[in-house]
Nucleic acid binder design. Structure first.
Lengths: 244, 244
DNA sequence: CTTACGGATTGCTCTGCATCAAGGCCGCCG
DNA sequence: CGGCGGCCTTGATGCAGAGCAATCCGTAAG
């Protein structure tokens, strides 16, 4: 499953829960509801496993593969998606540096993970995570809290997919990424293609492109080279997003 | 959060993972990946808390309420939903007897829970769940596995909401309920209104009604009184659902 | 510099589902 | 038993977004 965990090297977001769908677990465990003893559990996991570089569009694993490891993105961007038999695709999450996936899975993965851009990913055998949970019962709780965040994000995305208009979807997407993918200049880095964004938001490439253009024309955003986006008018964007 | 847990009194489904969106956790922990020591943890939780009867449309809790308890449905049907400011509604899950909710929540609930029909619900203070986890570390693992199932179901629902047609959505919905809501005669019990189904599938009441009619006319299903549905041709329904 | 290629943009048309608008059915209450 | 109100169904119409196709643009290769 699309479980990702943000590591200690990534600065915690002040709005962990308001950022919309992240499809990821945060190791900081922002929810204290299961007891606040997470401590350094995250650090232990972070150092485990072997890192490997994946090329553009190279799969980390595919739907149907045995789920015998969890993965942690050290650098780059990974997409998780499900396919219908006729090829329609739904991206259920994007993972950035520090995010983890594969924790929430059954015997086999029910979705595919691919590098969107060249990405470094650490692979940790599931057995080691299990063993670590035996040593430190608190880890299970940390993961529980993390999975909770994942679930909340998934439900937020259900609201988006089921009830929001194209414009609202894109506005929500931009604001969600505002929290997670800002560079030094405050711009958002969106290395994924329009098609990827479309498949994440339940739209087509053309519609995504048109809505980008409209936001640009309205001076709400500015499209920079390199796939970067500057949010000029966050308030308007917020209104367009209809909460979330 | 839409975390529900099916108790030991409900017969395990042979297709726990194929039934599509359930928005619920199963205490049987069908995934052995976190270690298979769940044992009787579920039974302990089942007996806890006080049961209470909720009338039709009566809220168990609302969006924004402090999330200081988890709830277990003993009998009836509960809907979980999120609202947009202008009133658009997305139902993120239906809970039946044995299902549990509220485990995956932050400080406050981010959705509302209401009884669809008169329902008996047990309320368990969160502190007791936490205490129980201290006693039995294995419980955290059981919940972890359960939450995993919830997450997989949520992602399946994302695929449905983002990429399936109205017909496919309804077919998927019927097959998912086939696993969970059969009565003695093999019919599906759907006590929720057309509006509820529409808000769950990201459609309108009218579209749901029209698709029901089409399936009926094609002799794929039969609509019985009392909101019951008989699946006459599961194969055709399966084709229409496009997997899931 | 020229060509080629893959993604992005834009225009035009089409359509699935939403929206608006009647009825129809049924259970409830006076 | 009759009227009322809620839900469901069905029909007519509209529209947001899909589908199709033609550039455009930026990058890489020659």
């Amino acid at each position: 499953m699309g479980v990702l965990i943000r590591g200690a090297n990534v600065k915690p977001s002040p709005h962990a829960f308001l950022g919309g769908p992240r499809s990821g677990l945060r190791m900081e465990a922002p929810l204290g509801i299961f007891g606040d003893r997470s401590g350094d559990d995250t650090a232990v996991l972070n150092a485990m496993g072997e890192a490997r570089l994946f090329d553009r569009d190279q799969p980390l694993f595919a739907e149907g593969d045995a789920a015998n490891a969890v993965y942690r993105v050290m650098d780059g961007l990974v997409r998780l998606y499900k396919l219908l038999p006729d090829g329609r695709r739904q991206i259920v999450g994007f993972l950035r540096a520090g995010d983890m996936m594969g924790l929430a899975a059954g015997e086999r993965f029910v979705y595919t993970a691919e590098a969107v851009i060249p990405s470094t990913v650490r692979r940790i055998p599931r057995a080691r995570v299990t063993a670590l949970m035996d040593e430190r019962p608190a880890l299970a709780r940390t993961l529980l809290a993390a999975m909770t965040a994942e679930l909340l994000a998934a439900q937020e995305q259900m609201l988006l997919l089921g009830r929001k208009t194209a414009r609202e979807k894109l506005a929500t997407f931009l604001l969600a990424n505002d929290e997670r993918a800002q560079d030094a200049a405050g711009r958002i880095d969106l290395p994924m293609s329009r098609t990827d964004i479309a498949d994440y938001l339940g739209l087509t490439t053309e519609t995504v492109s048109r809505e980008f253009t409209k936001l640009k024309t309205a001076h709400v955003i500015r499209l920079m080279e390199g796939g970067k986006v500057e949010l000029v008018d966050r308030d308007t964007l917020s209104d367009l997003a209809e909460c979330a």
